[in-house]
């Protein structure tokens, strides 16, 4: 086994925790959104695509990358098209594309002057913007292609255990629902055709009733196997977790507001955001420790995950450092 294949093996999709790929994708997206350097952006596009090629397995979500590539292409085109069509045709200094302009008046606001001369700077700017979006899309696409969503639902924090359960029920039910829609439609024809309203309800109602019955059976089976036991957390702990969440939300929202309305106060802004983020994570952790449920097969953190996470962390620090230094 060569060094590269061994390295790939270490981080490939089925060997890693889904969370690490999501964090990696997210940090690449953040780096992309903070830079205006076309080479960095291109590197991210090419990099994510090759990582996907190397590390993906043959699961259905790994096939979704085609969708992301198409979307990225569409976004670049749209971004440039907007620049060309709705260009603010004031400067003709370094114009490289001279198009006749057309007026479009909606009867409110300024009439739009479509097309007109386009400067190379503006064009470049739009192109970089387009590539930035494409890079973000591909980075998230990478996470989506390499992380098994079911595994991800299993790794959700305990505070979201109920919602994750509901979503896994939904994911399991969806294909059954399509099957039962087809089944009921066929069965309905055995009863005789009703017209109009009855025809729709004649299919929707049995499917819904059937699925609800089924889900109640599932709920009964979950309850009968112990689902719904409450933790033995004190009232103090419960209220404490809620209070912490509230403070976290306040910090986050005011940090966001500062960023938009008074960007001069960089230190305050940064403090609020970081504090909000940290408190949010702590409050979710706190709401998660209920200690009533065992996780028999927790997704372990392996060497591959450590490599992915370390790389993502370095990238993020560099990108944010650069952004705030500006």
């Amino acid at each position: 086994m060569s060094a590269t294949t061994r390295a790939v093996h270490l981080v490939s999709a089925y060997k890693t925790n889904p969370i690490s790929w999501w964090l990696a994708g997210l940090s690449l997206a953040i780096v992309a959104s903070l830079t205006s350097n076309i080479y960095v952006l291109l590197a991210i596009c090419v990099g994510t695509l090759s990582i996907i090629r190397l590390c993906r397995d043959d699961s259905p979500w790994a096939q979704s990358i085609g969708f992301y590539i198409k979307l990225a292409a569409i976004v670049i085109t749209l971004r440039v098209a907007f620049r060309i069509i709705f260009n603010l045709g004031s400067s003709t200094k370094d114009a490289f594309l001279l198009l006749p302009s057309i007026d479009l008046d909606f009867g409110f606001g300024n009439a739009l002057k479509l097309f007109g001369p386009i400067s190379a700077t503006a064009f470049n700017f739009a192109l970089v913007d387009g590539f930035r979006l494409a890079a973000i899309i591909l980075a998230v696409g990478m996470a989506n292609s390499l992380a098994n969503p079911r595994k991800l639902l299993k790794s959700t924090p305990g505070a979201l255990y109920e919602i994750a359960t509901a979503l896994s029920i939904a994911i399991n039910l969806a294909p059954q629902l399509i099957a039962s829609l087809n089944r009921v439609r066929r069965a309905r024809s055995l009863r005789g055709q009703s017209k109009g309203m009855k025809a729709i309800t004649g299919i929707v109602i049995p499917v819904l009733e059937d699925t609800i019955d089924q889900s109640m059976g599932l709920a009964a089976s979950m309850s009968a196997r112990g689902f719904g036991r409450k933790g033995n957390r004190s009232k103090f702990q419960v209220i404490g977790a809620r209070l912490l969440a509230f403070i976290a939300i306040c910090f986050m929202v005011s940090g966001a507001a500062l960023l938009l309305f008074s960007p001069e106060q960089q230190v305050l802004e940064l403090t609020f955001l970081v504090l909000g983020l940290a408190l949010a994570v702590i409050s979710i952790k706190l709401s998660s420790t209920r200690g009533t449920i065992t996780r028999y097969r927790k997704e372990p953190w392996r060497l591959g995950d450590v490599i992915i996470l370390a790389a993502s962390l370095v990238l993020m620090v560099l990108a944010f450092g650069g952004a705030f230094a500006r």
Partner: peptide, 30 residues
Amino acid sequence: VGYVNQQPENAFVGDTVIDEIVYCAEQLGL
């Protein structure tokens, strides 16, 4: 008390056999 339904496939919460078997033990916090 253990309880088994008429149509097991409708009562499954897991994807694999092992997921399904340990479910109750997990919920009980063993």
